[in-house]
Design a protein around this nucleic acid. Structure first.
Length: 746
DNA sequence: CGTCCTCGAGTTCC
DNA sequence: CTCGAGGACG
C-alpha cells in the first residue's frame, strides 16, 4: 500500500463569523480550489483503485492530497463529508449498530455441474413460457470470495454501509467502508437515483493480502489464513484507522433499494467523474467469444429517472457513476453460453487478481427476472455456478463419536491437520453409521478432504488403495453399543439413519447440550454461558436442569476455574437479563424434539399463553398449520413428562417471564390463518412492522405469491409479486387498506 | 403416492 | 451449509 491516507490534521478555529465577512473573495477561491482538488483526487483514486491504471505518480498524488488537507485545515468550513481527506474517519466506535435492509440481501442457489446449469436454464425458460421465448440472455460475472456489503447513496452521497448480516438486518460499518478507497464518497456522472443502494462484495486482492501477511510476519503477529478472512477481520475493526491501512476493495454486483427522483439527478462535480468508462475493459483481461451477446450492454449513457431494463445495463450505469464493477462481465445466450463463460473464467482464474469461488448467472432482462421470481430466500432467476472445492489429502487419526442434544450419536473423524480451502482442518463429521460404511473410512486411512460449500469440512472419499495391510480390519468403525458419556444403550430406530443414546437427560452429554441450547442466543440468550462453563457446572453437579441456572450465586461460581469475580458478576447479570423473554423464545429454549424456532413461534402465537399449550392434546396441536402427527406427538409427550413440568414451574417461579401475547385477538381475528405477501415499499410501515402486525393477529407472511395467498400488500415499486397477484385475481391492498383491515381488529 | 418446500438438527472454524 | 424428514399439495 503505497498510497496510505494519513489522518486529517486537527482543525484550527481560525476565523470568527465577523472576520470572515472580509475574506469573502479569498474564501470563494479556496472553495473553488478545494472542489477542484477533491475532484482530482477522487478521479485519481478511481484510476488507481478501480481501473488499476494510475495517471500520476504517487508523489504527485501526495502533493494534491496534502494541499487539500492544508486547505481544509485553514478553512474548516470547507470540510465536507465527501472529501477524500475524510476517508480516514472519526472516532472508534464501540459497536456496530443494526441496519435494516429494506430490500433483503438474498443468497444464491448453487450449481456444481453442467447438468444443474442446464436445469436452471430450463426452469427459467419454463417460467417464461407464456412469453414464448426460445432462449434467454444471461448476465454473467465472477463470484467474488469476499463479504457481501450494501452501500446507501442519498442524492449521490455515500451515507451508510452495512454488512449482509442475516440478509434482513446487518451491521453498520459505514466508518470502515469510508476508508475503502475505491468506494466513491460521492457518485459522479448523472442520472443516479435519489436513493441508491449498491450491493457488492468487499475483498482483498491477493497481492495486498500477501503484503499484509508479510507485514504481520515481520511484526511477529498472527498471519491471516486467506484473503477472505483478512478482509472480514479488517472490516470488523472497531477502529476505522486500522481498516484504512488494510488495502480493501469493493466491487458492485447489483442494487437494492432504488428511489427514482428526477429532480435530484444532477451533480455539480467538476470533472472528477470516472469519465471514460469505456476503456475499463481494455485494461482488464478481455473475455469474449462468438457466444457473447453485446447488444444489451450498449445503452450508451444512463438516463436519469428511469429504471434499467437489463441487469447488464444497470451494471454499466453503476460503473458510469464511479462504482467499481468486475471487468469480467459478459452477456451470453442460453445454457451453452453459460457453460462456455464458466470455462473461460475457470481458465483465467489463477491469473485474476482476486479470489473467486465460481461465477454468477442472472437472467438479464429485468422484467423477466420479475416474472421468474423468488423461492423463499433466493432468487430463481439467478444461480451461482461454483468451482469444484479445493481438495486435499490427509490421514484419519481416529473416529470418535459425539452425543448431541437429542442424543444423536455422530461419528467424527479426527484428522491430521491439513490446510484446505483457506483453513486448517482437523475434524470432519461423518454424519452417521451408514455414511462411514458408504465411504468406507477407516482409522489410519488416507482420505480426500474438502470444505463443502466452502465451510463445513467433508470427507469426499477414502483411498483404500493406500491402506497399509495392517489397518485393514482393525480400523473399521464400529458404532459403540453404549453411550460414551453415560453408558446407556445406543439404539437406532427402524428406518432412521441416526442412532441415539437412550439415556435422555440422565446422560451428561445430552444435558450439557440441552443447557447450551437453552442459553443460546436465539433461545434465552444468556451471554457468557458457553461450552467450557457448562462442562464445569454439569460435571460439578451444580446445574442439572435449566432451572438450576437461576439458582446460581456468586459464591458457587467462585469455586469454578477461570471464574474471577468480574466474569461471575457478568454472568449473573446476563442470567438476570435473560429472565425477561418472549413466550416463543421460552418454548424454543425448552428444546422439545422437532420444535425449532419457527414452530416455537407458531405455538406461541396460537396459544398466546403457556398454560394453554401445556394442556393441549395431540388433536388440538395438529390444528396448527405445519404441525403434523410427529411434531404434535413430540410436544404432547414433552409436557406429559412430570420432570419437564417441574422444570417449567421452577423457571417461572425463578422469575422467567414474558409479556403475554394477546391470545383472544388471534383466535377470532378474521385474518387468523390468512396468508399475506408483502411486496414493494410501504409509505409508512417497514416490512418488519407490517409482518409483526400480521403475525400478532394470527396471520402468516409468505415470501411468494401462490394460490394459497389471501392478501397481497403492495407498496411502491412492487414487482413480479404484484403482477402475479393480479394475474391470479387475488386481493391486493395498499397500506391504507391494509391498516384498515387490521385496525378494525385492534 | 410422489414432489416440492421448509424446518430442525448437527457441525466447523475464526 | 447440508442432510433428512415433516408437512402441504397436486
Amino acid at each position: 500500500m503505497v498510497r496510505a491516507c494519513r489522518p486529517a490534521a486537527s482543525w484550527r478555529q481560525s476565523c470568527s463569523a465577523a472576520d470572515c465577512r472580509f475574506q469573502v473573495a479569498a474564501e470563494s477561491q479556496a472553495i473553488i480550489r478545494a472542489r477542484q482538488l477533491r475532484g482530482l483526487i477522487e478521479s485519481h483514486n478511481h484510476a488507481y483503485y478501480a481501473l488499476d491504471s494510475p495517471i500520476i505518480s504517487d508523489a504527485e498524488y501526495d502533493v494534491l492530497f496534502r494541499e487539500l488537507q492544508l486547505l481544509e485545515a485553514s478553512h474548516p468550513e470547507l470540510r465536507s463529508v465527501d472529501s477524500p481527506t475524510q476517508r480516514v474517519g472519526g472516532a472508534a466506535s464501540t459497536a456496530f449498530g443494526p441496519v435494516h435492509h429494506l430490500a433483503p440481501m438474498l443468497s444464491l442457489n448453487n450449481a456444481f455441474d453442467a447438468a444443474e446449469v442446464e436445469a436452471f436454464d430450463r426452469r427459467c425458460l419454463d417460467a417464461l413460457s407464456v412469453q414464448k421465448v426460445t432462449y434467454i440472455d444471461y448476465a454473467c460475472e465472477p463470484k467474488f470470495d469476499g463479504l457481501a456489503i450494501s452501500l446507501r447513496y442519498e442524492n449521490g452521497e455515500f451515507v451508510q454501509g452495512a454488512t449482509r448480516g442475516d440478509g434482513f438486518t446487518g451491521e453498520n460499518v459505514t466508518a470502515n467502508l469510508r476508508t475503502i478507497k475505491n468506494i466513491p464518497l460521492r457518485l459522479s456522472g448523472e442520472g443516479f437515483p435519489s436513493v441508491l443502494e449498491v450491493r457488492g462484495e468487499v475483498l482483498m486482492l491477493r497481492r495486498d493480502f500477501e503484503r499484509l501477511n508479510e507485514g504481520q510476519r515481520s511484526k511477529g503477529e498472527k498471519e491471516f489464513a486467506n484473503p477472505r478472512n483478512a478482509a472480514a477481520g479488517s472490516l470488523r475493526q472497531l477502529d476505522p484507522q486500522i481498516t484504512a491501512h488494510r488495502a480493501l476493495r469493493f466491487f458492485a454486483y447489483g442494487t437494492g433499494e432504488l428511489k427514482i427522483d428526477s429532480s435530484a439527478a444532477t451533480t455539480d462535480d467538476t470533472g472528477g467523474g470516472s469519465g471514460d468508462t469505456g476503456n475499463l475493459q481494455s485494461t482488464a483481461l478481455r473475455l469474449r467469444s462468438g457466444l457473447a451477446v453485446q447488444s444489451q450492454d450498449a445503452t450508451p449513457a444512463p438516463t436519469g429517472g428511469s429504471r434499467a431494463s437489463f441487469h447488464s445495463e444497470m451494471m454499466h450505469r453503476l460503473e458510469s457513476w464511479g462504482l467499481p464493477v468486475a471487468a469480467e462481465r459478459e452477456v451470453v445466450r442460453g445454457a451453452s453460453g453459460l457453460l462456455a463463460y464458466y470455462q473461460r473464467i475457470g481458465a483465467a482464474r489463477a491469473q485474476l487478481p482476486y479470489d473467486i469461488d465460481g461465477v454468477v448467472y442472472k437472467v438479464n432482462r429485468i422484467t423477466d427476472q420479475d416474472l421468474i421470481g423468488f423461492v423463499s430466500r433466493a432468487p430463481r432467476f439467478a444461480i451461482a455456478h461454483k468451482f469444484p472445492a479445493e481438495e486435499a489429502q490427509t490421514t484419519v487419526l481416529s473416529i470418535d463419536v459425539q452425543v448431541g442434544r437429542t442424543g444423536a450419536i455422530t461419528p467424527v473423524a479426527r484428522l491430521a491437520p491439513v490446510f484446505v480451502g483457506g483453513v486448517t482442518v482437523t475434524n470432519a463429521t461423518l454424519h452417521n453409521e451408514d455414511e462411514v460404511r458408504r465411504k468406507d473410512v477407516r482409522v489410519g486411512d488416507t482420505v480426500i478432504v474438502r470444505r463443502a460449500g466452502d465451510v463445513i469440512p467433508e470427507i469426499v472419499s477414502s483411498l483404500p488403495e493406500m491402506r497399509n495391510s495392517g489397518v485393514d480390519s482393525a480400523g473399521v468403525f464400529v458404532l459403540p453399543e453404549k453411550c460414551p458419556a453415560c453408558g446407556s444403550q445406543i439404539a437406532r430406530e427402524e428406518g432412521e439413519s441416526i442412532a441415539r443414546c437412550t439415556g435422555g437427560l440422565f446422560c451428561p452429554a445430552q444435558r450439557k447440550q440441552a443447557l447450551l441450547h437453552f442459553a443460546s442466543r436465539r433461545a434465552m440468550d444468556i451471554e457468557g454461558l458457553g461450552e467450557k462453563l457448562v462442562d464445569q457446572l454439569v460435571d460439578a453437579a451444580v446445574v442439572k436442569t435449566p432451572a438450576d441456572i437461576y439458582k446460581l450465586g456468586i459464591v458457587g461460581l467462585a469455586s469454578l476455574e477461570r471464574m474471577a469475580d468480574k466474569s461471575a458478576t457478568n454472568l449473573l447479570q446476563a442470567i438476570e437479563r435473560s429472565k425477561q423473554t418472549t413466550l416463543a423464545k421460552f418454548i424454543y429454549a425448552l428444546g422439545i424434539r422437532n420444535v425449532g424456532e419457527t414452530t416455537a413461534k407458531d405455538l406461541a402465537r396460537h396459544f398466546g399463553q403457556l398454560d394453554l399449550l401445556l394442556q393441549a392434546d395431540v388433536a388440538l396441536l395438529q390444528m396448527i398449520p405445519d404441525v403434523g402427527p410427529v411434531v404434535a406427538a413430540s410436544i404432547a409427550s414433552f409436557f406429559s413428562e412430570p420432570h419437564n413440568l417441574e422444570v417449567v414451574a421452577q423457571l417461572r417461579a425463578a422469575g422467567v417471564s414474558w409479556a403475554d401475547v394477546t391470545p383472544a385477538a388471534t383466535a377470532d381475528s378474521p385474518i387468523a390463518g390468512k396468508i399475506f405477501v408483502l411486496t414493494g415499499t410501504l409509505p409508512v410501515l417497514s416490512r418488519d412492522q407490517a409482518k409483526a402486525m400480521i403475525e400478532a393477529l394470527g396471520g402468516k407472511v409468505a415470501g411468494s405469491v401462490s394460490k394459497k395467498t389471501d392478501y397481497v400488500v403492495a407498496g411502491t415499486e412492487a414487482g413480479s409479486k404484484l403482477e402475479k397477484a393480479l394475474a391470479l385475481g387475488l386481493k391486493v391492498l395498499d397500506e391504507e387498506a391494509f391498516r384498515q383491515l387490521l385496525g378494525a381488529e385492534l
